[in-house]
């Protein structure tokens, strides 16, 4: 008798959370995914996915991917350089603590306020724009720069990508053992040889994995782009946003397909991140 009742009772403790997860995380996602494979009449179809290859949608995804990739690559390179500088560069140790704290703040300072900060700085009457024009006589808008553009958006994204990179890669850099550098040195290697043959290969999975994570991070971001471009720039999440608001695609099931494609892209990026992470954890212990 006690044995019969024990199992369900134990599971009852986790039930509220599991019901919550099913109702508000798994079912909604599953609903979107299955919706992508059915038409309005409820028949199984691949037509929705095929419709994704309309030029406007393909272009939106291409732009999204380019934007996410460029912001991820720049975020990765600059964030890595700063993380190496404050961890191994012989700077005062206080700078490292300050950098880490600031990264925690800046990586969470995304979305609408971030775009305001950039407009106030590099908009047509922004702080730096005016400073360059009045003090140095350089009119950046005259030179073709525009904050509401691909590169403007990339710059804004990089603002939250760099700190995220610093937060994730610093533990990996700390995992580089002093003995590896010293062992390579007594074996005759120079600093450059050490970085090329040991440090970078050891960090490689972490770098690649974090790149994938930054990519997914930028790909799902909507608010920054909307606040900056007023939903003008046609990137995939904005397309979906507009579709949800007003069915601009004239086909609700195409919206499902759009969302499904987004899940696939961010899902694969995250999978790469997790695989790479396990690989590097195997090395650095």
């Amino acid at each position: 008798m006690p044995n019969l009742r024990k199992l369900p009772l134990v599971w009852l403790g986790a039930a509220p959370f599991l019901i919550y997860a099913v109702l508000f995380l798994l079912l909604p996602t599953a609903n979107i995914i299955t919706g992508a494979f059915f038409n309005a009449e409820g028949h199984l179809t691949l037509a929705n996915l095929a419709n994704l290859f309309k030029p406007e949608i393909v272009n939106a995804f291409a732009l999204s991917i380019r934007l996410s990739l460029s912001s991820a690559v720049f975020g990765c390179l600059i964030g890595f350089a700063i993380a190496v500088a404050v961890s191994l560069g012989g700077l005062p140790p206080r700078l490292r603590a300050v950098t880490m704290t600031f990264s925690g703040v800046a990586s969470n300072f995304a979305g609408v306020p971030l775009s305001f900060a950039y407009l106030a700085t590099l908009g047509r009457v922004g702080f730096v724009t005016v400073l360059l024009r009045d003090t140095f006589g350089v009119n950046i808008y005259g030179l073709g720069f525009n904050m509401i553009s691909f590169w403007g958006l990339t710059m804004a994204y990089v603002f939250f990508q760099i700190p995220l990179m610093i937060l994730i890669i610093t533990p990996a850099i700390d995992g580089l053992k002093r003995e590896w550098r010293e062992a390579s040195e007594v074996l005759g290697a120079t600093h450059v040889q050490y970085w090329r043959m040991i440090a970078l290969p050891v960090l490689w999975p972490s770098l690649l994995g974090t790149l994938a994570l930054l990519f997914a991070n930028a790909f799902g971001a909507v608010a920054t782009a909307i606040a900056l471009t007023g939903s003008m720039l046609s990137i995939a999440p904005i397309l979906l946003f507009n579709q949800i608001r007003g069915d601009v695609l004239q086909d609700p099931h195409l919206g499902y397909a759009l969302a499904f494609a987004m899940i696939m892209i961010t899902g694969v990026s995250n999978l790469i991140y997790i695989i790479m992470r396990t690989r590097s954890e195997r090395w650095i212990k």
């Binding site: 600059i78 700063i82 500088a85 700077l91 990089v158």
Partner: peptide, 25 residues
């Protein structure tokens, strides 16, 4: 150390400018 200071300074400028611009504006 020169490289480290360069990277750190770049980051400082990159993060300081938008914040300064935002405050100034």
């Amino acid at each position: 150390r020169a490289f480290a200071w360069a990277a750190f300074t770049f980051g400082l400028v990159y993060f300081f400018l938008p914040l300064a611009g935002m405050v100034e504006f």
